[in-house]
Simulated assay, not measured.
Amino acid sequence: MLSEFERRSLDQIEHQFRLDDPLLDNRLAVGRARPMPTTVLAIVFGVIGVGLLCLGVIGAALGCFGMVSVLLLLRGTTWR
């Protein structure tokens, strides 16, 4: 159980957090966001590409990896 002083301190910290970063506060309040469809498709094509590479089907595997890169570019993923 928190004392009254600790409760007020926590309220002040929460208020300052909301002022400093409202976007992050909104994301935390809403909960975990669902993955984007492009992310799910990139993972599926990546898994298929690895499977095809293990089977020795190089051309189709490269096609799948190309699709992964296109999907990640459409999503806006960067390397930094």
Rank of each mutant, 00 (worst) to 15 (best):
Leu53Lys: 03
Phe65Ile: 09
Phe5Lys: 14
Phe5Arg: 14
Val68Cys: 11
Asp20Tyr: 10
Phe65Lys: 07
Leu53Trp: 06
Phe65Asn: 01
Gly66Met: 11
Gly63Ser: 11
Val70Cys: 03
Phe45Trp: 07
Glu14Asn: 09
Thr78Gln: 07
Asp25Glu: 09
Ile43Val: 15
Val44Ile: 15
Ala42Pro: 01
Asp21Lys: 14
Arg7Asn: 06
Arg27Ser: 02
Arg18His: 08
Asp25Phe: 02
Phe45Gln: 08
Cys54Pro: 00
Gly51Pro: 00
Leu41Ala: 14
Gly56His: 10
Arg80Ala: 11
Glu4Phe: 07
Arg75Thr: 02
Pro37Glu: 04
Thr39Asp: 06
Thr38Glu: 15
Ala42Tyr: 02
Leu74Ser: 12
Leu52Cys: 04
Leu62Cys: 12
Val47Asp: 15
Leu2Gln: 08
Ile58Cys: 01
Asp25Ile: 00
Pro37His: 05
Leu23Ala: 10
Arg75Gly: 01
Leu72Met: 13
Thr77Trp: 07
Asp11His: 05
Arg7Asp: 10
Ser69Lys: 13
Val44Gly: 01
Asp25Ala: 13
Leu52Ile: 03
Leu19Tyr: 07
Val44Asn: 04
Met36Asp: 11
Gly76Ala: 04
Val30Gln: 12
Gln12His: 03
Arg18Asp: 12
Thr38Tyr: 09
Ile43Ala: 14
Val50Ala: 13
Met36Leu: 03
Trp79Lys: 00
Asp11Cys: 03
Leu73His: 07
Val68Gln: 03
Glu14Val: 14
Phe45Glu: 12
Asn26Ile: 07
Val40Asn: 05
Gly63Arg: 08
Phe17Lys: 09
Thr38Asp: 15
Ser9Pro: 00
Leu53Glu: 11
Gly59Trp: 15
Leu53Phe: 11
Asp20Ser: 12
Val30Met: 06
Val40Met: 10
Gly76Gln: 01
Ser3Glu: 10
Met67Ile: 09
Glu4Ile: 09
Leu55Phe: 05
Gly63Leu: 14
Ser69Gln: 11
Ile48Met: 09
Arg32Asp: 03
Ala29Met: 06
Arg34Ser: 15
Thr38Pro: 00
Gln16Asn: 11
Val44Met: 06
Val50Asn: 08
Phe17Trp: 02
Met36Asn: 12
Leu28Glu: 05
Ala61His: 00
Leu52Ala: 08
Gly46Met: 08
Ser69Thr: 13
Gly63Lys: 10
Ala60Lys: 04
Asn26Asp: 15
Val44Thr: 12
Met1Leu: 06
Leu28Ile: 10
Thr39Met: 07
Gln12Tyr: 03
Val44Cys: 02
Ala42Trp: 01
Asp25Ser: 15
Thr39Glu: 10
Pro37Leu: 05
Leu55Tyr: 06
Leu74Pro: 00
Leu28Phe: 13
Ala60Thr: 15
